[in-house]
Design a protein around this nucleic acid. Structure first.
Lengths: 300, 300
DNA sequence: TGTGCCCATACGTTTCAGGCATGGACGTCG
DNA sequence: CGACGTCCATGCCTGAAACGTATGGGCACA
């Protein structure tokens, strides 16, 4: 009997929600469609998966068995996807270097230059991801190695910290704070801070410096997925600022924006990370080069 | 990205044949359809899986990675199917007893009677399969326990031999051999023997008594999938006989058929078998009952 | 008893897999 | 060297299936 990962996803969603309606919302499909898919799955399996009692549905034994197995099938397929994508890149001697915004900054560019000179047959493919997406991209096989902004979930990855950068603040040039040479976190007490749903809460709180030294927490501004959207918000919204690493101030200049150093917070730490089971020698070489550069005194 | 076990089967077939045309035949689909499915899979994965060179196709690295993983996915799904079906039967206290033709004969009926008396809340569901299908049915989760005719592939199963039966020969009543009280294998030297594609070659050869004591091999008659088809062939074909266990002579009487004992060949051995990882206590109880009955002197 | 929630069903639409026919590239053989 | 066979790709049509909207029915709760 054939089956689709889609219906397995549908089934897992219903089993987790124990509600067709709620699962349909989560899956962005109409509820009748979901009902039909589950019913068809039950018909093909020859057994009910849910007990539809009034105002509550529960899993049958067969449903419980399928829930475990379906989760394994789905994660197995994710793993397969990663292997295939990685193999495809490796075959064509491509190293996909994941990053967010300015990523690894100057170190990344130096590493790329050395790598390209040493392995002229290989190609570096920079891959930009949305906030907090670079670590997951490694697990999904969408990148072979990445400059990961900490904090991040490094499960399944090998990593080493290769750089750090002071944090700066961006604001509209007309903003009162733009008259200061440097910013302290207390200055941002009432400033709406741009934030994102696509990264983890830990990531968002770290950037927002939550909790603040005085025990307060950030005021949230506009939501965004990546650096361009974030800066667009800051440049156009009536209020609000954003925080980024120092390199962002030079990489993303903007006529309406002013960058100022945020002097009393921890710097951003940047890790180079790659999958634990990475078998690509080119990835290992790139990691060695970047590590060696990180150990040298910075030429800046 | 979603995927279907069907396209994984398609991919594995092409990868194993290294030919679209041959794989299409094996899969019983038209070659253009197969080409399109593979091409679409490649597009969704974002990488080629095959190198289409003139007069030979080969796997890319990504294809090799997918081949391994797809085989695992497919066998994983088979395993899942078994778990779900088994759980469904266990939930409703049903023990599905697999068999072929007369299956375990008198012993099976006795076991069922004892089991039903001892566990009145449970239900025995006899499940008949085509030639040689009962062991695979256990692995596929289509039966919980089965009377398996040996020889059979018992991989993944626990088993014990519980009965044996002399083999008999069925022929048209007008057949010259029907005048004999008993048949010897040499008498069948030139008789076309009914056979099947659905069981393993070892199974077919064992029933055909290949090779014969004189070194010859059977002459093949009509092909069939199960006992009714087989007997229909014997009753209507101009020539040919079939061999079955003694119980078949009493279970499948037929006005045009005559059964005679085949006196100089090994008897059929019947094993009771169930999955190694069977967790159902009812299955264990059934196995104990049948085993105990097998150890008693036969009441026949 | 009316209302809201939740799941199932009906129906029309779109998408997609499959079959048939055909085209193009390449190798082989007369 | 040309005709033919083999093999994979493409075009076109058909049938099946999935999705969405609208609607019906059962149950809880007010």
């Amino acid at each position: 009997m054939d089956v689709d990962t889609r219906v397995l996803r549908y089934f897992v969603a219903v089993a987790e929600c124990l509600s067709f309606t709620e699962a349909a919302n989560r899956l962005y499909v109409a509820q009748p469609s979901l009902s039909r898919q589950i019913k068809q799955l039950e018909a093909r399996l020859g057994t009910d998966l849910f007990v539809r009692a009034s105002s509550a549905i529960t899993l049958t034994r067969a449903g419980e068995a399928l829930l475990d197995a379906a989760r394994q099938q789905l994660s197995g397929w994710q793993h397969t996807l990663r292997l295939v994508r990685t193999a495809a890149a490796a075959e064509s001697n491509v190293v996909r270097v994941g990053f967010v915004a300015t990523g690894g900054g100057a170190l990344a560019r130096q590493a790329r230059a050395v790598f390209t000179e040493r392995y002229p047959d290989a190609t570096i493919a920079p891959k930009r991801f949305d906030w907090g997406g670079e670590a997951q991209a490694l697990r999904d096989g969408l990148a072979d190695i990445a400059f990961v902004w900490l904090p991040a979930d490094l499960t399944g990855l090998r990593s080493r910290v290769v750089a750090d950068e002071q944090r700066w603040v961006a604001m509209r040039s007309s903003h009162p704070l733009a008259r200061q040479d440097k910013i302290r976190i207390d200055d941002l007490r009432d400033e709406p801070l741009m934030w994102t749903r696509v990264a983890s809460p830990e990531w968002v709180d770290w950037w927002a410096v939550n909790p603040r030294p005085d025990g307060s927490t950030a005021v949230w501004g506009r939501e965004n997925d990546n650096v361009e959207e974030m800066l667009e918000h800051v440049a156009t919204a009536t209020s609000g600022v954003c925080i980024g690493p120092e390199s962002m101030a030079s990489y993303y200049t903007h006529p309406d924006l002013t960058w100022r150093p945020l002097v009393d917070v921890d710097p951003l730490r940047i890790a180079l990370a790659w999958p634990e089971d990475s078998a690509s020698p080119l990835v290992a070489r790139f990691a060695e080069i970047a590590s060696a550069l990180a150990d040298q005194p910075s030429p800046d």
